[in-house]
Design a protein around this nucleic acid. Structure first.
Lengths: 91, 91
DNA sequence: CTTATAGTTAGATCGTTGCCTAAATATACA
DNA sequence: TGTATATTTAGGCAACGATCTAACTATAAG
């Protein structure tokens, strides 16, 4: 799971998708409109982000709306802070 | 450069090496002793970490001692915090 | 200068990843 | 039901990445 997250973050397109979603939820078409790449390719990237649980998806009529899943993000940040030597917050 | 950092972080062996170095500097032999993998393979991983500037290396006699490079780590953490929506520290 | 030790570089193999086009699925609406 | 739109799934291919063994380089020490 941790591994899936870091694998997902290792591609520039996927990181850009995450950055886009930072500005608000978007459907798959809107997301792919930001890239010079086929829709299936973007769909594939979205699928990886989804399996890593970095994004959530909800169908809204004909569209599928994607949003950031902060929880998993925090975990990855937690791992990095642990290595960087920062105090990790007790839960 | 950012891309190299995330690519470097995408492999479990490399993340484990970083975690090990968190406990103190180590030479290449000591590092490879922690893994069930050939020395050349570990050397390759160290090379990637070095090119991503996540680690620094200094020769000490017959040994080459590796250490964490916090600076680049902070940058990667900064990127993640930016997406996660945390306040980014003004420089 | 020769040998031993530490580490890297070279080259091969094999699984993985990223991209594409074509086809399939799902929803909306006439 | 039939057509249009949105998105995913399937299949294929080239590039990349992780690993190994063998060979090389660098330092140390007799």
């Amino acid at each position: 799971m941790e591994n899936e997250v870091f694998k997902a973050l290792s591609d520039p397109t996927r990181r850009e998708i995450l950055r886009l979603l930072r500005g608000g939820d978007m459907n798959a078409g809107e997301i792919s409109g930001h890239f010079d790449m086929s829709k299936p390719s973007i769909s594939h990237h979205l699928s990886l982000l989804k399996h890593a649980r970095l994004v959530l998806d909800v169908r809204k009529g004909q569209n599928i709306v994607y949003s950031l899943n902060m929880t998993v993000f925090q975990e990855a940040i937690g791992w990095m802070l642990a290595v960087a030597g920062k105090e990790k917050k007790k839960r």
